[in-house]
Nucleic acid binder design. Sequence first.
RNA 1: GGGCCCGUAGUUCAGUGGUUAGAACGAGCCGCUCAUAACGGUUAUGUCGCAGGUUCGAAUCCUGCCGGGCCUACCA
Length: 517
Amino acid sequence: MSGRSTFYVTTPIYYVNDVPHIGHAYATLACDVIARFKRLDGYDVHFLTGTDEHGQKVEKAAAAAGLTPQAFTDKVSQSFRDLIGVMNFSPDGFIRTTEKRHYAACQALWEKLVAAGDIYLGKYAGWYSVRDEAFYADSETEVGTDGKRRAGPVGNEVEWVEEPSYFFKLSAWGDRLLEFYDKNPRFIAPESRRNEVISFVKGGLQDLSVSRTSFSWGIPVPGDPKHIMYVWLDALTNYITECGYPDESNPLWRFWPADLHIIGKDIIRFHCVFWPAFLMAAGVATPKRVFASGWWTTEGQKISKSLGNAIDPVAATAEFGLDPFRYFLLREVPFGNDGDFQRRALIGRLNADLANAYGNLCQRVLSIVAKSCGEKVPPKGTLVEADTALLDRATGLLAVVRAEFDEQAFHRALTSIWEVIADANRYVDAQAPWALAKTDPVRRDTVMWVLAETIRRVTLLVQPFMPDSTAKILDQLAVPAEARTFAAFDRELASGTTLPKPQGVFPRFVEPAAAAS
RNA sequence: GGGCCCGUAGUUCAGUGGUUAGAACGAGCCGCUCAUAACGGUUAUGUCGCAGGUUCGAAUCCUGCCGGGCCUACCA
């Protein structure tokens, strides 16, 4: 393709035994905002999401629902596809592990691992939990008062299983993984997760059972189709399937290695230990960075099915608006931390940050321009120090926000942007354009130009977070579509351009009960 | 058991050796009136979890304790 730098970002692929909730929406939102930012910044971006559809759990859930596994996964996978529209995500690809191309990629990777001598046939015996799809050591299980053996006192029921299994020689990769982490300090973020992984690997690695014979809903092992590939070997491979693996002449292969895998903190081991080991063993380049996001609680409580307190993205966006919801999720909590979803906090952000600070800034500026400047971008007169100070701060944001995005520090990026919004509000008060209207209309016009131009610069940077709302604001500034990327960051508003009638973009949120009284 | 992280104003957090510990939101007061009862200015609040120690000096380093979260082999 062109000489542009590529940027490949992925969500976890979502397991289809669950309906989409805030956790899924959150991880994908983070990827979406990054993908949008990188596109605006001129990168050749590929943004992948999808669903993980194999395994014994899915096979059983399908049977329980009276459906074939394929029909069952078709249905659930669609609910994740629907989330894209609800949240206004912008993926370039949606992968399903039940696709043909994925079978081919997994089997090709398997054969590479065999050829490299990293896979051998052995036997696995142990306590197995169907529900967990996991084996447990004898010491990890105990027999309850009902006579059933469980994985821990409150775990799921386990049964003794012995089966032939292929193993991946993970035990041989400990030192090479530690060296890899050492040479790639940015590979795992945040820092505390990196510490956990390194400590885990230093504790010693055992070979990994990578096939099952106890069920059939999965990808057959090449040459030994009684064996089904371990679901994680299957699932992780999706990231290279998308790029055409093993066909390196596929045009999408230019995106590998991935720049960023965003995942939930629960699956960090698979992505930071197994995945790089598989890839190194197969002679495939390793991804550059894995970022583990935290979990959300609701009003201080753990989200659970029994409490029924899960945040439904459809309901949340319907009540508060899509963009405010997107903004809140990334502004309220430092990315990587756990977060608490509080209604009061969301309304606070919506009113204080969006309606009052940003929305009202746009409104007060645009309405003066409409009323007093003939509905045109006013003439840019001679700039004084206060003007250039504000404009320079807005311009400086681009570099600041870029740096914060490199760390996935969305909340800090937004904080920096909102500091300039506050500066702009202070500037309005200090310049008092309503007073200048009587004493010095020329100066008033310059002040209004400075403000409109500041809003333009700020809004360009807010686009990845709130694409719809910012599009409306840029429309009101008559910024043409092709001038909305960062390449056009320095393309100032042209005086004399006709502007449409201003309209509020971020209405205040009033509790329905309060509005009624 | 081992390991990692955290405990700072009503709330969410920043601050990792050095002036009277900061910000935002919320609260009070004042100003302004272009604007979405928005904006600006200003005031107030904290034994920086507890107890020791190192240091000329600690929220910041060390030790112990208390409290919370997480990881500890294959569940998103």
